[in-house]
């Protein structure tokens, strides 16, 4: 069983409270009408299947019912980090030990949230 840290509940919970929801950070093409069939097909159907570090979306289904991102190693099952929607990962395939501090500041811009939602 995995012990997963929910970034909204701010504590570790049992795996059975969560569902995996596939690859994270997929952005919908801004103008679907301008897409080629190949681009649209890639967006809809094609997913990465890396060996090693992978960014996934999970939902805390029995809990706060929020979606969040998980950086997971597909070889060792190790969960390197969990972070809320809208944020960027610290661990990537390029930086398996975590991004250096100067890179981090550029990448981690505060996402705009609805007023007062996040305390």
């Amino acid at each position: 069983m995995l012990h997963i840290y929910c970034p909204y509940c701010e504590e570790l919970r049992e795996e059975e409270e969560f569902h995996p929801k596939g690859q994270a950070h997929i952005t919908r093409p801004a103008d679907p009408d301008a897409c080629s069939d190949e681009e649209w097909g890639d967006y809809l159907f094609f997913r990465d299947n890396p060996r090693g570090i992978h960014h996934e979306m999970w939902v805390h289904a029995i809990g706060c019912r929020k979606f969040f991102n998980v950086t997971r190693n597909t070889v060792t099952y190790e969960i390197l980090e969990t972070y809320p929607m809208g944020e960027q990962p610290r661990f990537t395939a390029e930086y398996p030990e975590g991004k250096p501090a100067d890179q981090l500041n550029d990448a981690q811009q505060e996402p705009s949230r609805q007023e007062g939602v996040h305390v």
Binding site: Y8, C9, E10, E11, G63, C64, R65, K66, Q114, V117, H118, V119
Partner: peptide, 24 residues
């Protein structure tokens, strides 16, 4: 309650408010 997974009550304990998720 402002913190996750917490519960606030009035002194009589008859009325309570509980955190369910960041906006619920």
């Amino acid at each position: 309650p402002a913190r996750p997974n917490t519960l606030n009550q009035d002194p009589s304990g008859e009325r309570s408010a509980q955190w369910l998720s960041p906006d619920e």
